[in-house]
Amino acid sequence: MKFRRKSDADAVPETVGESDSPDADSGPVGPHDVDDLPEGVDRVDLGSLVIEPEAGRELRLQVDEQSGNVQAVVLAGADGALELRAFAAPRNGDLWSDVRPQIAADMARRGGTATEREGRFGPELLCELTVTRADGSTGSQPSRIIGVNGPRWLLRATFLGRPAVEPEAAEAWEDTLRKVAVRRGAHALPVGEPLPLILPENARRTDAPSE
């Protein structure tokens, strides 16, 4: 898996190439709480998110250039990308049900659309937003946003590119999401507060997982 520091100015490509999607595996359903992860698998520890490396997935860290804080983790591949963010949630509750209308309202304010549907992980949002490209032209950027409620955490996953619009491309990316683990931590945080992400020391190193 490749590591790359990614600033807010970096954008996920809107046009993606062709790629065959592997069949879904039959492993345990995730995403997981970090305390429930099986042993014996090498993973990248980013603080609140723990990622299992996969061939063909480049790990990018979206960093706020002013504060230096890591804001999101992006897994990018030939046919799209998956953005991951984790938030503090109540012990007993459904934060995702509260957040979905907020996301839809934000999309509408920005001139986009958000349609709710039932998916593999429960209720999700199919979004479309008009964006301005680097050359000044405009285009449509589809996204698919999934929320997973965990023990005192919410994992928000955004699919971009083909996985956002093509079921055959989404299957392998959904399996990637199933392998993600969240570390909530014991400290008190307001509901909805982003869980801290850590820039690892080897973020500039390129590692390839054994196959």
Rank of each mutant, 00 (worst) to 15 (best):
M1T: 08
K2E: 09
K2N: 07
R4S: 12
A9V: 14
A9D: 12
E14P: 06
E14N: 08
V16Q: 12
D20E: 15
S21W: 11
P22F: 13
D23A: 15
S26H: 11
V29N: 07
H32P: 11
V34Y: 13
V34N: 06
D35L: 12
L37P: 06
E39R: 08
E39T: 15
V41P: 02
V41R: 12
D42F: 12
V44E: 13
G47S: 08
V50R: 12
P53A: 05
E54G: 08
A55E: 15
R57A: 04
R60Y: 06
V63F: 03
E65P: 05
S67M: 03
V70M: 09
L75M: 06
A76P: 08
G77T: 03
A78T: 13
D79I: 01
D79E: 14
A81C: 07
L84R: 02
A86K: 05
A88Q: 03
A88S: 11
P90E: 08
N92Q: 14
L95E: 01
L95M: 00
S97Y: 02
R100W: 09
P101G: 06
A105C: 04
D106F: 06
M107I: 01
G111Q: 10
G112K: 07
R117I: 04
R120A: 03
R120I: 01
G122Q: 03
P123N: 10
P123Y: 07
E124T: 13
E124C: 12
C127P: 02
E128P: 00
V131I: 14
V131G: 02
A134M: 15
A134W: 14
T138Q: 15
G139T: 02
I145H: 01
N149S: 05
G150H: 02
P151N: 15
L154N: 03
A157I: 03
A157F: 02
A157M: 05
T158W: 02
T158F: 02
P163N: 06
A169H: 13
A170E: 07
W173K: 11
T176Q: 14
T176N: 08
R183W: 13
R184G: 00
G185T: 00
G185F: 05
A188M: 10
A188Q: 13
L189V: 01
P190R: 09
G192T: 02
P196T: 10
P196W: 06
I198K: 04
N202S: 13
R204E: 13
P209S: 07
